[in-house]
Nucleic acid binder design. Structure first.
Lengths: 247, 247
DNA sequence: CGTAGTATTGAAACGGATCAATATCTGTGG
DNA sequence: CCACAGATATTGATCCGTTTCAATACTACG
């Protein structure tokens, strides 16, 4: 598979292709929605260190346990972080979307494998170069701290989801999360579901069949309608929210 | 309930009662075990901002949704972060032990409630003062980034645990985690279980009864022995590890 | 237009939740 | 020091929903 890479150039034009991150800050702000954190200056700085890559769907970015050479920024598309268990089961620990980062190592190695779900545009920076910058630019380091704190909240939210026993409820919570991510898109009742059923199953720790049945149930109950396999319309928002909260 | 607080004094003696944090760094090191991250100088600096508090067991530190005034450091004891769900169920998102931090806000509010499990000694620093320091001292900010990244891994590991369907396996993985935390104690086969069965149930998203049965099963199978309710001895390490890995 | 991966549907079995009863522990006051 | 009360934990029986196995349908891509 061909991987396109290109060194980004510094300067004003570079912002079109400079890394960025999105998170909810610590402090109380005007909006609860996550915001872009980096200043143009910071982005330009990172851009001088970053390489851009454009990847096709279902391409492995790196494997679990590999040497953590790079830290990645998602610019476009969706990727998944996952682990394969001894039993052959696969656990998706996170879906990463534009504004997310991944590849922060532990002990010099990646802890999850990462694979593109859709076509994706990423930036990558050498781990050492990034940590050098972070150790020198306190404001930038602080932005990253906000981001990782946010990711921690996300992981905790997933434990809440997995704590539910009913497949319908887990699926509804998952779709609710997707909806927040995609908020600001054209039709507010449309949720784009970019990943496959079995990716969802791996994320929700359900069998593929259970996900399939849950989708059908929610549809026959009139809560959702599937325009196609990757597009859901919320047809009864009240019951949708009630199902999400009912745990 | 009486809460003892005391402003720490700066200077050399302050290290006896200065905040500290523990985490596995990004880079490959000599040991895989988490290490103390802060330098004496950094600790002294934090000590000038910190207040020490000593809390009895089962004392609420703060509630979910409260204004995030303070960031906390665990010096001694165990506390739990949790959320109460509409159904009345309680989900423990994390047990926090010495070297851990908690109270990093999202949008100015705490996202979990926190309560002591055992008697505990904490340090607290005003959120604004801490963030000010972090924005000025890049090395310190970087240490915090390592720490939060570590916590993110921990949360991801918990999603792996919750992904398992069998109560015995979940319990075994939980005990395995506890064992790592307590490693370096006298008898390597003894795991101190400082929390109650129902805390464990809330953490593992199991019913109290399921936890109870799982403990009994592991004991009757000869994998563990309960010296008392809060002390487990691993009697068959091979099968213990196999059970942990079998997922 | 075929083929491999992806998804749906059905039937049976397993395992945890729940309800209910009982046991044990812990801390308090007599 | 003991007895008691409230919280914590154990054990049993039934129910329900998900897993698993199996067969079939769909769909995207070359």
């Amino acid at each position: 598979v061909t991987v396109l890479t290109r060194k980004t150039t510094s300067g004003l034009r570079a912002l079109d292709s400079a890394p960025w991150i999105r998170a909810t800050p610590f402090r109380k702000g005007v909006s609860e929605l996550p915001a872009r954190l980096l200043t143009d200056l910071q982005r330009q700085h990172l851009a001088t260190l970053a390489t851009r890559l454009h990847l096709p769907p279902r391409k492995i970015v790196y494997r679990e346990g590999a040497d953590a050479t790079w830290v990645f920024f998602v610019a476009e598309g969706v990727v998944k972080a996952f682990r394969d268990l001894p039993s052959g089961k696969r656990r998706v620990t996170a879906f990463l979307v534009p504004g997310d980062i991944f590849g922060l190592a532990e002990n010099g190695q990646y802890v999850n494998a990462v694979r593109t779900v859709t076509e994706a545009t990423l930036f990558r920076i050498r781990t050492e170069e990034l940590t050098d910058v972070l150790r020198r630019d306190p404001e930038l380091g602080f932005q990253f701290l906000c981001k990782v704190t946010n990711d921690l909240r996300r992981a905790q939210r997933q434990t809440i989801v997995l704590g539910r026993r009913d497949a319908r409820g887990r699926l509804a919570m998952f779709l609710g999360i997707l909806e927040k991510h995609a908020s600001g898109k054209s039709d507010p009742d449309i949720i784009p579901v970019l990943m496959s059923r079995s990716d969802i199953a791996d994320y929700l720790a359900l069998s593929l069949e259970a996900v399939s049945r849950a989708t059908r149930e929610l549809a026959t109950e009139g809560i959702l309608r599937f325009e196609d396999r990757h597009t859901v319309r919320v047809t009864d928002r009240r019951r949708f929210q009630r199902l999400i909260a009912a745990n």
